[in-house]
Amino acid sequence: MSTPILELKDCEVHFPVYGGILRHKVATVKAVDGVSLDIHEGETLGLVGESGSGKTTVGRAVINLLRATSPDVHLGGQILYRTREGRQIDLNGLSRREMRPLRAEIQMVFQDPFSSLNPRMTVEQIVSGPIKLHMDLDRNARRNRVHELLEKVGLQSSYASRYPHEFSGGQRQRIGLARALSTNPRIVIADEPVSALDVSVQAQVVNLMEDLQDEFGLTYLFIAHDIGIVYHVSDRIAVMYLGNVVEFGTAEEVFRTSKHPYTRALLSAVPEPDPDGKRPDRIVLEGDIPTPLAKPSGCGFRTRCPIARPECAAARPNFETFSDSHFAACPYTETLNEKGTPHVEPRV
């Protein structure tokens, strides 16, 4: 296999929490706590997890935005990006100035199409913003490019002079995509790109993203909480829980032969759009997701895990390998398989 276009090695993002009268550091939020992933050119990597899993933070770490919003964040590990020339650059160590040329190559699409577009800018200003920064085009060429991009995302070029509030949610997400594509990026990080949209519009945006990927050879990091959508768009899927990847494999491996008890529970918790498909064997996890402020020791999932043992508190489990591409961070996955889907009395 070729060198990945993006490789995360033991990536860590820790936010200090200040409190007390003297505003000293009282705790650390380990939002991302040792994540290793590789993304190959042209593929879609799905990153799925619930709130507090750190999936959004992974995306922000890749575009190197965290330092700007919280200057005293601790960034550990490496985020290796392979440039068009084949050089590997560690994005984690880059200053803002060094990162600037790379921003054109790694773009982002946000969840909320209502707040991520500046309401006082026309569509043309929004989409041409990154072009101005990164590409050497004159006014006319810029305008032409904006019109071309709008048509690519399924909007009329005459919309260029309108303002975001004149559009529906789905159309705004298309504008967001046009903006992301304006600099010919290689990687697009899509953070919950469809979850704020109406059901009947989600499919349009998903299809559009797939078309754009084929046309421009894009690589997607697709971040979402909806495992159904993630499975549909992804080549490979990483499942995150409390700042760690707990399972990583091809979409089929993770979806059909999941090995981690959390993945199992997550899959079984998703309701089926079929009245006869009610699962008698659903695993309903007990309790709440712990906050990343007070992560359990050892395996982060052990407080809710139906097959947890005392040993799970001791150390964070290593990845078990199930195929060339399939890994899960649980040494007791065998017991999960023996019991089928385990049903265990509630524990506190």
Binding site: H225, S268, R282, L285, I289, R304
Partner: peptide, 8 residues
């Protein structure tokens, strides 16, 4: 709510 909480 999160999916696993929705199930609950």
């Amino acid at each position: 709510l999160d999916v696993t909480i929705q199930a609950q």
